[in-house]
Design a protein around this nucleic acid. Structure first.
Lengths: 245, 245
DNA sequence: CAGTGGTCTAGACCACGCG
DNA sequence: GCGTGGTCTAGACCACTGT
């Protein structure tokens, strides 16, 4: 791979692995690194972007670039993982909020309701220490919410508490569907998660339906790609594929 | 969001949605667009990168930027989706190859074998038309492979055929674990998938074990983020309790 | 305040595709 | 060969952090 910044990223990766800068320590300023490698600052920044997306480097605007502890990933475990005894996130604090809202086009599609239908929106931001690590936006259609499932909820970073609320209101979740993609964050998401708009995120769409196939909860989860993963476990047949179009 | 290129991306998104350029058609050259928006070419390219990561625009080096049919996503459905009646592959051709290899550090960890252990490597590239859309690298430890599971295999884009081979050799897969992250592709992956190193990909690690907990197959899947998704469906825990009494 | 990263400029040159 | 996107330069200026 002939890319200039890729070569620089390789070199920096090697230096970090060799312990040139201890974990948590600040790297030399981008200007100095650019001078060292005799490249322009945008090129050097591309190299750092690569390392950032690998979770090796954390960029802090105005402060510097820092070496991060590797392997420190936040795991979103799909419900079944609980059966396998896999632990979910620990050491997270969560801030949350809820409000009334109206479904936009995307939300209407997710929840199978009409555009502008009233919904209750819960927003969860999971923190590890001082930095946000997960964003969950959970939506409950008003037709479901008015059964009693509104109000403040608990502290699960994935918004699972809404399920408890639904259960308390007599709503039984029968099935869950999750779709995951990789993309760049929107401006709002980047701001809430304290990341750049140039670093990949895992985006999850979760839909829960009751026994009648009615959607009782929809959720949009966003996880920084460099520090999180989705975990699925299950007993096995063969995996299947579908090409839509 | 004050970003210049974000505003341009918004405007182009609007124009595309409005049908200014028909699906599959070429956008004006980047130079011309840059002139139209009175920005430098790197800035305009950033805007196009955003649209590309949303799957709205396809970049072709030397040819131009093209409007892509939206909603055309390749779905990797986890095994349980079969229960939900999700259809199987259509419209994909697959090229594949296999060879003997030795486990590097990462592979050794994935397969729970020693570094330099012999493994059989299968590489699958799924094509939709002429363009590659999925990359699967499937590994079988030699201790399993020598039972008979070596040789050419079928045409599933996810490398599921290796399972058939294993089954034919009397190897029973009891459980599967999948981990998904969002990151940038490596140089090799970008080349094989015909994408930029700057566009996010979904990276899946799949591990299959037999009843004794021994790893019989490990797989590394890479899917372009702008045109693929992972699908997971399942009944809820409550429902499961009902079902099992 | 000084130092740092974030964004953008106005070009240059290279690599690819297509006729 | 020509038009296209891909990469890179050598700065400038702004926004943020910490003292």
């Amino acid at each position: 791979m002939g890319n200039r910044y890729h070569h620089i990223a390789d070199d920096l990766r090697r230096l970090i692995a060799a312990g040139t800068w201890p974990t948590g320590e600040k790297l030399p300023a981008e200007q100095k690194l650019a001078a060292r490698y005799r490249v322009s600052t945008p090129t050097l920044r591309n190299a750092l972007e690569v390392l950032q997306s690998e979770g090796l480097v954390e960029k802090r605007h105005g402060a510097g670039n820092f070496v991060r502890r590797p392997g420190q990933r936040l795991t979103y475990a799909s419900e079944r993982a609980a059966d396998a005894g896999v632990g979910v996130a620990s050491g997270l604090s969560v801030s949350h909020d809820w409000s009334a809202a109206k479904a936009d086009a995307r939300l209407a599609r997710l929840l199978a309701v009409r555009v502008d239908s009233p919904v209750t929106e819960y927003i969860f931001v999971g923190y590890q220490g001082a930095s946000p690590r997960s964003l969950a936006r959970v939506y409950v259609p008003y037709a479901v919410a008015r059964l009693g499932a509104v109000g403040p909820v608990g502290t699960s970073p994935w918004g699972d508490d809404v399920r408890d609320l639904l259960a308390a209101a007599g709503v039984r979740v029968a099935a869950t569907t999750e779709r995951a993609t990789a993309r760049f964050p929107t401006g709002d998401e980047a701001q809430l998660l304290h990341i750049t708009r140039r670093s990949p995120v895992l985006a999850l769409e979760r839909v829960a339906t009751d026994v009648d196939g009615r959607v009782v909860e929809g959720a949009l989860l966003v996880l920084p790609g460099d520090r999180s993963e989705i975990l699925y476990t299950g007993r096995s047949a063969a995996d299947k594929l579908e090409a839509t179009g």
